[in-house]
Amino acid sequence: MSELERLASLRTDASAAVAAFRRRAAEEGLLDVAYAELESPLGPLTVFVTPRGLVRVGYGAVEDEVDQVASLLSPRVLAAPERTDHVRRELDEYFAGRRQSFDLPLDWSLVHGFAGNVLQATARIPFGSVSTYQEVASEAGSPRAYRAAGNALGSNPIPIVVPCHRVLHSGGGLGGYTGGLDRKRFLLRLEGVRAD
């Protein structure tokens, strides 16, 4: 029946309605997590923002990152680049060498317990300087818990902005990094730190 074949092949454009929905969802407080993919010298990053602030910067494949955030925080997750503009701007400035510290509100929802103390101590390490696992463990209140500090840094949900790349081994070794050591080297070099 040709009339109905024609009916089945019709196309319409949903994009305007979806954009309007996204705006309304945010206005009515139903957008728990907004995300966007950004380009960076370190490769694509996925950034996630809640009404409280930046909650995650992910190096992984976008689908996996989004899935993970949906199961850890809330399934009300939408791609909404317009809500992550300030994050993109500050990261662009940082990578261009025009920014040394971030003025972004942070949401620590993905961090629990001792790891929170470790990462907050890490957030205080200034641009261009480095610290050690032992020192951040002390700063976090447990000098001997440097192994736990290492774990906390390894699972830092907000890398780059919470600068876990500035934490090295006491002997000067590079230690580990959530996004791979090449990225850690790149970030340290960007900040003028010599590290092998």
Binding site: L7, L10, R11, T12, D13, A14, A17, V18, Y35, V66, D67, V69, A70, S71, P75, R76, V77, L78, A79
Partner: peptide, 23 residues
């Protein structure tokens, strides 16, 4: 339950819902 990110529902179904509603 594991609910997929809402964005996934939009990517998969917003187009066909819109066609349905237009009709």
């Amino acid at each position: 339950v594991h609910l997929p990110p809402f964005q996934q529902l939009i990517d998969a179904h917003a187009g066909e819902l819109h066609r349905f509603l237009t009709a």
